[in-house]
């Protein structure tokens, strides 16, 4: 029998929920509502007059080629980060799942980057790869490769991908490790007796059994790359050079703050909001069902 606490009267439950509801309302629903409202407005450059324009901001946004370019940049950036952070984290987790010496220390070190703030991570990688002074840059140059993320868009992209990947590996690692440890040891042993080589064991047993974790992480990683990498990009490249690393979320910031186009920027953030809602819906709908065995 399930035991349930029954509250007589309605005041106490409401009081208990109130703090969380307030936080959600003030910090999530209110700004979201404001963004939607603002996306229908156009303000003059001095903020003196405001006009309600319905969907004009959106029409302008989707009429311009540069928004699609930013979408492409975001797509490239997020697939690279998701692919590398997932595969590297999986590799690390498989290693950590084996009985190795200093396993605890190994795991702790792997988890550290997650505690680093995005902007600091960006600065860290910026310093390491700064063309003239960076330690890594000097090594790369010494090897005869002309490395310059300040001028070359591909180099800049590589830099922010590395920084964003590095930061996300910890998170993925933790989930993969937990996922691996949830696979019964006897299933792996049965496969070993069934004559599967370690490689085959991984691809035919472990990887399919991890698929719910992998799918969950894929969605979480995409959300991460879409939004939380703002700090990294701002600190490392500021979307440059020549907007080569400008992602959707960074464009919201640069158009709104530097460009002064509040309505257009709000419209962009509403588009982002729709994307994240869609991703969350996919996750809720499928993570429990489709990807299970």
């Amino acid at each position: 029998m399930e035991k349930r606490v029954v509250f007589h009267g309605k005041l106490l439950p409401f009081l208990l929920l109130a703090p969380q509801l307030l936080v959600t309302l003030i910090f999530f629903y209110l700004p979201a509502g404001q963004a939607v409202w603002q996306s229908f407005l156009v303000q003059d450059a001095f903020g003196l007059s405001t006009e309600f324009v319905w969907f004009e901001n959106y029409q302008i946004l989707f009429a311009k080629g540069e928004y699609y370019r930013t979408m492409l940049t975001t797509a490239i950036f997020s697939s690279l980060v998701a692919f590398f952070s997932l595969s590297i984290a999986l590799l690390f987790a498989v290693q950590a799942d084996k009985h190795i010496k200093f396993a605890t220390g190994y795991k702790t070190l792997l988890i550290w980057p997650y505690a680093v703030a995005p902007a600091i991570a960006g600065v860290l990688w910026l310093f390491m790869f700064q063309p003239s002074l960076g330690l890594v840059s000097q090594a790369i140059r010494a090897a005869g490769f002309e490395w310059n993320p300040l001028l070359d868009q591909n180099h800049a992209m590589a830099l922010v991908v590395m920084a964003a990947t590095w930061k996300q590996i910890s998170y993925n690692f933790l989930f993969f490790l937990a996922g691996l440890q949830a696979i019964p040891k006897s299933v792996i042993e049965a496969a070993a007796i069934d004559g599967a080589t370690p490689m085959r064991r991984f691809w035919t047993i472990i990887f399919p059994l991890l698929s719910p974790t992998t799918f969950f992480l894929l969605v979480v990683n995409i959300v991460y790359v879409f939004f939380d990498t703002f700090g990294i990009i701002d600190a490392a490249t500021q979307g440059g050079p020549a907007k080569g690393t400008e992602t959707l979320v960074y464009k919201v910031f640069s158009d709104g703050k530097s460009g002064g186009d509040l309505g257009g920027s709000a419209a962009q953030s509403v588009v982002l909001m729709v994307i994240v809602i869609a991703l969350t819906a996919i996750q809720f709908r499928y993570v429990e069902r489709k990807v299970q065995y």
Binding site: S186, V187, A190, A191, I193, D194, I205, L209, S211, Y293
Partner: peptide, 20 residues
């Protein structure tokens, strides 16, 4: 190696491959 010993084992929790 276990695979080369030509044995088969039945486990307590059956250890069936759940996705197959």
């Amino acid at each position: 190696e276990p695979a080369e010993r030509d044995i088969a084992m039945v486990f307590q929790n059956y250890a069936l491959y759940p996705h197959m």
